[in-house]
Design a protein around this nucleic acid. Structure first.
Lengths: 199, 199
DNA sequence: GTCTATAAGGAGATAGAC
DNA sequence: GTCTATCTCCTTATAGAC
């Protein structure tokens, strides 16, 4: 009984892992349910015992990622300042992508976005994350670590966009830089830009 | 004779316009040849008299965009400094997207990228643009307008990524900011980041 | 060159045996 | 719950009349 349940859970995790990887590499449209089934090593109809549709599966994979981000924030020390927390979370997200994972918001195109906005669980998670990040942004502004002339929303959406920046993919493909170097450069320009800085 | 030829050309332009718009809004995978044909008001088989495949059509639309970027650079005054040229081109690209156009490199996913890399004309155009931008970057570094500690490639790919930054879409959808304000904020953070700047 | 009609293949989703 | 086999729909691409 309990063993069967656990097997079911482990399979669901495997499905989400596969979907996350395929989602990250091929994108939602090109990721087929056959791909997922083959990657896990099960038949396609079995997928539908876990997720009632492809949309559901994608939303579940993204929701899990956000849950992991929220869990990561929990592990940061209480006394860490807001700006450092923002930097840490970005590093965490970029590291996941370097390791072949999925970007935070692959929803560049409208249909994908609409699909996600129909999923209540996903919305509740993303709103929770938004609230936390907005809090950090406001605190960091007060501490003169972020530019107060920029609206909160601009910094928020820019922050999400940095975590799924295609610059990372291009550098990995077409430059000789090591993953570590890429990570360092991206962190740096995400906050400070590319302009010359006086010493 | 010449009239017929002109009609053909005008139709081809209309096809590229429609493809560009659909490509920008729905993305390559979800844009169907039916969509394009309906948008232009012609039958689907007629499309194939102009472009032998969907891949060809997409590559042609992107190539045209790059040609327009190259043409834009030609219009800039000779004595404009490199940094200002970089800023101008970015503004140009962002303005196109604000007007509902297509991002520069929608090729976040691997299959799309591979498709483009098989198209010789596209490659020749993008290489030409790359060379120009890299030249500007090197000059701007020498003039202490860009951070010399960053490799050229990092600045180059980051530059392309900024022109297709999803932050623009999110701000347009979920903020109250006007297009003009969005444009200004994006230009600013693209070069200078979000950090606090001393006066 | 443009259309109507259709081919060929692959997608998401499901019926029913085990 | 899992599989094999299948349904239905929609895609890209083309054949052939005009």
């Amino acid at each position: 009984m309990s063993f069967k349940k656990e097997t079911f859970q482990r399979r669901e995790t495997a499905i989400l892992d596969a979907a996350t990887y395929l989602f990250g590499s091929k994108g939602y449209d090109l990721m087929t349910m056959n791909d997922v089934a083959n990657a896990v090593g099960i038949a396609k109809p079995s997928l539908y015992k876990h997720f009632k549709s492809k949309e559901d599966l994608a939303a579940a994979a993204l929701s899990r990622l956000i849950d992991q981000a929220l869990a990561f924030l929990q592990t940061l020390p209480e006394d860490m300042d807001a700006y450092a927390k923002l930097k840490s979370l970005l590093t965490w997200g970029l590291q996941i992508r370097i390791d072949g994972g999925m970007p935070f918001l692959p929803s560049t195109n409208a249909p994908m976005r609409e699909m996600l906005m129909r999923n209540q669980y996903y919305i509740s998670r993303i709103l929770q994350l938004n609230a936390l990040i907005l809090g950090f942004i406001q605190t960091a502004k007060q501490q003169k670590m972020l530019n107060s002339e920029l609206p909160d929303e601009v910094i928020l959406f820019n922050y999400y966009a940095r975590s799924c920046d295609p610059t990372l993919d291009y550098l990995r493909l077409y430059s000789q830089l090591s993953p570590k170097e890429i990570l360092n450069h991206l962190e740096k320009i995400s906050f400070s830009g590319v302009c010359y800085v006086k010493n």
